[in-house]
Design a protein around this nucleic acid. Structure first.
Lengths: 135, 135
DNA sequence: ACGGACCTTAGACTGTGTCTAAAGCGAGAC
DNA sequence: GTCTCGCTTTAGACACAGTCTAAGGTCCGT
């Protein structure tokens, strides 16, 4: 019954079947709260400040583990990079062509019609990817 | 006035400001006719059969040149790979989750509403990316 | 022939991501 | 308290995509 606005990361990991560890908590505390759409190496750089001895393999393994366990989603949007996104709700993406920055676009801001009527495809998920300039 | 159903690749390159060469023609003959959405290394492998001494740098340079000159489009859709697509008309993409194969979806098969009304974004282009199984 | 512009080549280099072998750590059994 | 088992972490090697460089080749006008 103890309602809390602060997430208990350790409990969150356990609830998703991930055994907590110091490294996994440090990674979780950054990547599950950010809206920066970081790549794996950006996560690595960030986490290294809090935990300087962490290895690159651990960060990659942990991010992939989080994706497997449904804590994160991976998107292939920018030039040759996989980015991670803790926003699990379906949403669209806008890519700033000048900076490469990725912005979330709420699902309700756009509507795609006829997805269910596509011939020959059994669509499991979809999103609109937009590119342009910030106004 | 000589209408022709067979494309003259050399003339096509010239019309787009690309000086033809044996290597560029071999690459064009494959990549401008395929619907396989090949990656650069797949193009390299394919072209090597026709022209065994061709170098990887030439294939990469040529593909990027074709994109610059408007003969091809590059898409970042699959796991960490850039794929090339001679279909220049706007269209959507369906990714088979089982095989990773990419299929074109005609622009007219789907409709996205409200793109112009997005707050804060000046959208230059967009597409719908769908994932699922083939029916 | 010569020269210049452009193209191609092999291989080195960079960056991203995966794998491996060994060491570390935590929790339960004794 | 310590042993041991299973899981995690580590450093570094590896694999792969893509770019760059330096050198040589080709074509064409003169």
């Amino acid at each position: 019954m103890t309602a809390s606005t602060v997430l208990d990361e350790a409990e969150l990991l356990e609830r998703h079947g991930v055994l907590p560890s110091a490294q996994r908590l440090a990674i979780a505390q950054y990547v599950l709260r950010t809206d920066e759409h970081p790549s794996a190496d950006q996560v690595f750089a960030k986490v290294k400040r809090a935990l300087p001895m962490v290895s690159r393999a651990t960060v990659y393994n942990t991010l992939n583990l989080f994706v497997d366990k449904g804590l994160l989603r991976a998107h292939v949007l920018a030039e040759g990079k996989v980015v991670f996104d803790p926003n699990l709700a379906p949403h669209h993406h806008f890519i700033d062509e000048e900076t490469g920055a990725i912005h979330d676009v709420p699902w309700s801001a756009l509507a795609v019609s006829n997805v269910d009527a596509l011939e020959g495809f059994d669509v499991h998920e979809y999103q609109v990817v937009l590119r342009g300039k910030l106004k």
